[in-house]
């Protein structure tokens, strides 16, 4: 499986993402600097990692989303390549217009950092198919701006079309309808606040994230 991780100034989960991808798929991803104008050809998977791109200036993810690499990222999304954005990566995908809504400051104003119960809302996506009948996961969260917001019409559409992939078991940030992760209409772009790449090792945070990467790998083979 050929994959890439995009690296922005201020990314800090890019190496965790690379380790998780290599551990699960057996192949190390190409690390791509955001200033590049194109991604490698023939990718099976692209990950937009978490962190604090551009120090969260202006709005989280706003400046990173206007990076030179974004034009090609959008092209790859339109071509159906699976793209996963985690935490700041989710914020970047939203700011780039690849996913609907907005991620606002947590309702309680606190940075939340804990292992959180996460509910798999549907296993009918290429990112969650491997979870099968498993409904509840434990995945670490660590964010200050994860409060998902969208107008009622958009929320209804997301729910109606099966685009809500994950919900929080115990809403930590005020997200509308407990939403923790959503896919685009085509189902090849997933954004989520929890960190599956931090849950691929029994000694560090559990292994509940492994199946997400396995699902993607299964979907491209």
């Amino acid at each position: 499986m050929k994959s890439a991780v995009i690296v922005y100034p201020g990314s800090n989960c890019d190496r965790d993402a690379a380790v998780a991808i290599e551990r699960v798929t057996g192949h190390a991803p190409t690390m791509v600097w955001h200033g590049e104008s194109s991604l490698p050809e023939g990718l099976d998977f692209i990950m937009v990692p978490g962190g604090f791109s551009y120090g969260d200036y202006l709005r989280c993810g706003a400046i990173a989303a206007r990076s030179p690499i974004t034009a090609d990222l959008i092209k790859q999304a339109e071509a159906g390549v699976p793209i996963l954005g985690v935490c700041n990566g989710f914020q970047i995908l939203i700011e780039a217009g690849l996913l609907p809504g907005a991620l606002m400051r947590n309702e309680g104003l606190h940075f939340v950092c804990e292992r959180a119960p996460l509910l798999v809302e549907t296993s009918q996506t290429r990112f969650t198919s491997g979870y099968g009948d498993t409904k509840e996961l434990t995945i670490p969260i660590a964010h200050h701006d994860g409060n998902y917001f969208a107008d009622t019409e958009t929320l209804d559409r997301l729910e109606g079309e099966g685009q809500v992939a994950f919900r929080y078991g115990n809403n930590p940030n005020g997200s509308a309808r407990d939403i923790a992760g959503i896919t685009n209409a085509n189902g090849n772009v997933l954004g989520m606040m929890p960190h599956p790449e931090r849950a691929v090792d029994a000694k560090h945070g559990g292994t509940d994230g492994v199946k997400l990467f396995e699902s993607v790998m299964g979907s491209v083979q």
Binding site: L58, R59, A62, R66, E95, G101, A102, M104, A150
Partner: peptide
């Protein structure tokens, strides 16, 4: 429209 404001919110 392009950067300074997020039209969603």
């Amino acid at each position: 429209d392009k950067l300074l404001a997020n039209p969603v919110i």
